[in-house]
Amino acid sequence: MNALRWWWGLVLAFALLVVMRVFLPLPFANEVVIFSIYTIGCNFLLGRVGFISFGQPAYLAVGAYAAGFYFTYFGANPYIGIVIGIVVGFIVALIVGPFFVRLRSDYFALVNLALAVIIYFLMQKVLAPITNGDNGLWYLTNLEPTPVLDLTHPSQFFIFALLVGFATWAFYKYLDDSIYGACCLGAKINEDKLTFLGYDNFRIRLTAFVIANTTTALAGALYAVYLGFVSPEITSPTRAVDPVVVTILGGVGTLYGPIVGAIAYTGMKDVLSQILVNWELMIGFLLVFIMLAGEKGIWGTLEPRLKKLFFRKAASETAGGSKARTA
């Protein structure tokens, strides 16, 4: 019963994504799922540990280029490419993390941006002989169809991305429930107390950093497979605040905020960009409104209301469920 209660929110959220897939175009659905995974790391850092990062594209690019290099020069199996993206993302986070997490929040935001800029120029200029500079790496046709779930096929890729997303959310939900999750929340507002209870603050922050940015690299690797190419555009400084925007849009520190934010952002981008040239202006206004209205974001505002609604329903459902079991 407890286990059921733990899972139902997750199952419901991803069931809704499946519904979305039925009614909305496939590229939209794929984009939303990957963007959600991209954003959850940023949401975790900001909402759970109190780190704001303006350089998440750096880690996205690390995952994407790691997979991209593999597809261009070494192999063709999408699954292996994704694993490589994750591993390289993990390693990079582990290398820069010890330096970055020592910084206070505002400098942390900027040092990540600096890394994004560095990677942008590396890929665009310095490593141009192997990255093709602005043109990027194109390997769509190299990718090898895989058995069971063929990732070269967008509709099957969606199923895979959905499963990966589900696992990611289950992981972050578990993280929230763990002692470690409590440590993160503690570190967010009161590092001194945590230290004087005997916890190692540095290690807690570093772990959060590595977890979040490995997730971001995973999203990058998913992009690499899904798009079939990778170019420096992925880490362009003009896209640096996207995940922060989506995090705030969805609701900072809420579990489902990134999904809601990704749907809203991608939806607005697709719809508004057709009628408005400067659609990002609208997003800007929306953000200002959200922050002035109490910083809760879309999901942060909806969640309590839905919970109220649901708990009434859940009570009767629970009764039904336990009857069914005894029968």
Partner: peptide, 28 residues
């Protein structure tokens, strides 16, 4: 000095856990 964003029992839980279990990352 307490953790204002955690419940009372979770504040106590954090204090207790470090002292009576290990505070290694895996345990956390």
């Amino acid at each position: 000095s307490t953790f204002d964003n955690l419940s009372v029992v979770d504040n106590l839980g954090l204090a207790y856990f470090r002292a009576h279990k290990k505070s290694g990352l895996m345990q956390l």
